[in-house]
C-alpha cells in the first residue's frame, strides 16, 4: 500500500484536506498533518484510549481508524472542546477536582466522556465507572476523574451542551 491519498474532513469545525499514505492512522494524521497534538498515541493498539476523539459525534479510538476512512467525516478533538477561553464543563470539572496528573491521558478521557454523556446524559455512577474503564491512567487513580465526571455531567445538563 503505497502512494499518497487526499483526505478531506472537518476538524473542530474547520474543513481540512490532507495528503497521507493509506496506512496512516487517523491519530497520526491529526497529530502530524493537522498539528493537533492534543490527541495522544499511548499504545497504538486501541487499548489505552489516549487517542479517543469524536468521529461524527461518536467517541472512537483514532489509532484504530485509517485517516482515509475519515474522509467526509466531522471530527472533534480536545482542541475543539472549549469555546475560546471558556472551558467545556467537563474540562472545568477536571480542573476543579484536581483530576489531572501528568495530563497525558486527559484529552482521551475528556473526549470519551463528552462523547458518552452527549449520547447518554443520565448515566449513573456505575455506568460512569464502566465508561471510565475504557481508558487507562497511571497517575490519578481514576477516583478524582470520576468525581469530576459527575460534576461535569451536572454542569453539562445545566448547560444543555
Amino acid at each position: 500500500m503505497t502512494g499518497m491519498v487526499d483526505v478531506t474532513f472537518e476538524v473542530n469545525g474547520e474543513r481540512r484536506t490532507i495528503r497521507v499514505e493509506p496506512r496512516t492512522s487517523l491519530a497520526d494524521a491529526l497529530r502530524d498533518e493537522c498539528r493537533l497534538t492534543g490527541t495522544h498515541v499511548g499504545c497504538d493498539e486501541g487499548v489505552c484510549g489516549a487517542c479517543t476523539i469524536l468521529l461524527d459525534g461518536a467517541p472512537i479510538r483514532a489509532c484504530l481508524l485509517f485517516a482515509v476512512q475519515a474522509d467526509g467525516s466531522a471530527i472533534c478533538t480536545v482542541e475543539g472542546l472549549s469555546d475560546g477561553e471558556t472551558l467545556h464543563p467537563l474540562q472545568q470539572a477536571l480542573l476543579d477536582h484536581n483530576a489531572v496528573g501528568c495530563g497525558y491521558c486527559t484529552p482521551g478521557l475528556l473526549m470519551l466522556a463528552v462523547g458518552a454523556l452527549t449520547r447518554e446524559p443520565d448515566m449513573d455512577e456505575a455506568a460512569l465507572t464502566r465508561l471510565l474503564g475504557a481508558n487507562l491512567c497511571r497517575c490519578t487513580g481514576y477516583q478524582t476523574v470520576l468525581r469530576a465526571l459527575k460534576a461535569g455531567q451536572i454542569a453539562m445538563r445545566a448547560d444543555g451542551s
Binding site: 492534543g38 495522544h40 478533538t77 480536545v78 472551558l87 480542573l95 489531572v100 495530563g103
Partner: peptide, 20 residues
C-alpha cells in the same frame, strides 16, 4: 487547583512527541 492544568485539559500541553 493546579496552574498547569489549563493547558493540559485543552490539549495544549506539550509532550516531547508533540514537537516537530
Amino acid at each position: 487547583s493546579r496552574i498547569e492544568d489549563r493547558a493540559l485539559v485543552t490539549g495544549r500541553g506539550r509532550f516531547v512527541a508533540d514537537f516537530a
